[in-house]
């Protein structure tokens, strides 16, 4: 709890709570980052599920650089937003679910790419892709609903 309060009372927390435009700016960065990461996650999993089969999965790799950029934007903006009310976010079920879903979604994205690279059975690739997509969707939905289920 001390660590949570230390983080919340730190300079980032003060900035995000007190600066007039700080919160909206960090918020829109979080939205742009989300669109970038999730956009790539969604199209890649669609491809693994059999959409636009002519596209080679390795050719998507370069789009992953863009996804990582989006992820970095959201890690930084997320940590700043988190400083805004750390001690209440940590105990919010919706927030816990969001973070869990994103961590799991990230691991699954890696597993999907591995399954494609190692030529695992198509059924395995598709199953992983479905679960991966679901995790990320849960991440977005819970993220949006955090504002309502506080």
């Amino acid at each position: 709890m001390d660590a949570l309060l230390w983080y919340e009372e730190g300079p980032m927390g003060i900035f995000i709570r007190e600066s007039l435009w700080g919160y909206p700016i960090v918020l829109f960065c979080h939205a742009v980052g989300m669109a970038t990461v999730m956009g790539v996650v969604v199209v890649l999993n669609m491809r693994v599920l059999g959409f636009a089969k002519e596209l080679s999965v390795p050719a998507f790799a370069r789009l992953f650089n863009i996804a990582w950029l989006g992820f970095f934007i959201n890690l930084v903006s997320g940590l700043i937003l988190f400083a805004g009310s750390t001690s209440s976010y940590v105990f919010q079920g919706t927030f816990q679910l969001k973070i869990g879903a994103i961590v799991l979604g990230g691991i699954l994205m890696k597993l999907v790419m591995g399954a494609v690279r190692d030529n695992k059975p198509v059924a395995v690739q598709k199953l992983l892709a479905v679960v991966c997509l679901l995790c990320w969707i849960v991440g977005v939905v819970t993220g949006r609903l955090m504002a309502y289920l506080a």
């Binding site: 999730m38 956009g39 969604v42 863009i66 977005v140 504002a147």
Partner: peptide, 20 residues
């Protein structure tokens, strides 16, 4: 909130398709 959530998902799908 339901419409907002769908609006977010639509935004993601639109932006992902455009990224390709």
């Amino acid at each position: 909130p339901l419409m907002e959530t769908l609006h977010f998902l639509g935004l993601i799908w639109l932006f992902g398709a455009l990224l390709v």
